[in-house]
Design a protein around this nucleic acid. Sequence first.
RNA 1: GGCCCGGUCGUCAAGUGGUUAAGACACCGCCCUUUCACGGCGGGUUCACGAGUUCGAAUCUCGUCCGGGUCACCA
Length: 487
Amino acid sequence: MEHQTVRTRFAPSPTGFMHVGNLRTALYEYLIAKSMGGSFLLRIEDTDQERYVEGAVDVIYNTLREVGLQHDEGPDVGGAFGPYIQSQRKGVYLPYAEQLVREGKAYYCFCTKERLESLHQENGAFGGYDRHCRDLPPEEVRRLLDAGTPHVIRQKMPLEGTTTFQDAVYGEISIENRELEDQILIKSDGYPTYNFANVIDDHLMQITHVVRGCEYLTSTPKYNLLYEAFGWEIPTYVHLPMIMGKNEDGSVSKLSKRHGSTGFADLEREGYLPQAIVNYIALLGWCPKSNEEIFSLEELVQNFSIDGISKSPAVFDYDKLAWFNGEYLRAMPPEEFTARAMPYYREVFGEEEKPWDVLTAILQPRAVKLPEIPGMIPFLKELPEYPASLYINKKSKTNLENSAEMLRAAIACLEAQQEWSQPALHAALLELAQALGVKNGTLLWPVRIAASGTQVTPGGAMEILAILGRDESLRRLRAGLKKLEEE
RNA sequence: GGCCCGGUCGUCAAGUGGUUAAGACACCGCCCUUUCACGGCGGGUUCACGAGUUCGAAUCUCGUCCGGGUCACCA
């Protein structure tokens, strides 16, 4: 058998929206090509002129760029098999369809949409086309054509027998030919149907691996019958398991908006990092040989193989995505985290300058998504109202009385404090605890409560004091002491 | 409804006739600790059901049930 280099293609239609399922398909196409040293191309399938959306192609370019799926050929980068936009290829499809008509493998169909619809009503929801025009006399066809009668071109499907094909994931699949309707190749507007354009372009662009969602599994024989009609080599099919969403009642169905965000842009807006999204969806339906889970795109290329793709549908788990996101956040150099978090820091502090490194030190190990930062630290902006009972903590051995004592000691210590940095405060307070002969918690619990007015905070007393600054810290501690004395 | 595909912890999953049925997320407990988080350790009658093949079945066969997909001049 002739050895060809692997070529895959991502062929989205420009809808202005990148569903994670589509993105995963693109990812696997990229990985299959790159893991075998092949090429990955982008082709825009816009044969449905009614669905044209302004700027939709840019959404595709931007998404691919952000996740790092760089295509080797495509509308924007060119290539030897262009054009890569189907609406610019309109002329290429019709001759192929006409060729099949000449060879008796396809025919003109003049049935109106109305007739097809009434057929539908007569035969129930699942009644198909009755092949009314399949055997029209040639003179009749000529006459209708000459009269300019609107028509489509349909392929003659075999009336009996079965079509069998091999899928790289699902294995051998057979479908009865009688299940197949005489499919439309060219629509009455002159555009090819998706299926037809797909086959023609995949052949012309020398695609070796057709990767797509498994909703196409049952229509694959239609494709093969077309390849056979032309005498073309059938590509390797790689059908991917579906991505599901979990419903309220515990059932699952195809992932859609009601399950949460399903678009790449939406997920990104919610604070998921592109790399985390890619890493997560790579593992949705595919499993590496090793037990690792964190993969960069390059590592995915190194580890990917088609036999690791699973057959069963996978439920999209936002919790696990969030975990990946947290992992990526924690793996960042602190400076990068600070830079990315700055808009959220500014949201809380405005133009005020703060020891950002301390803030990052407490938030980086805790944040799961950047946008949740403002919600994690409201107490740094403003001291909330809080009950004195917060001072009581069994494990730290604190109660209303000793808390007041601790605060008094802490205030005295901090008033004398020269350097107001986190390490300096850390040293000073630990020394104080030791001098007082109490465990760290006994001193630090009341300090943290007074400083934050919040039972659970990211970071500890020293970090909070360092971020608040000297004046605000002392003000809060004194207020806390006063509250305790009033009890 | 016909046809096609699937069914291993709540979720993602490894597993291809002999395993104590991995690992991860989530959950719970403990440890660490300055609360929380991070980190560490530990926890869970999970192979849909019923027959069959076999010395032996999550793995092979059949049936049942459940889930999903598909039957367009949409892609």
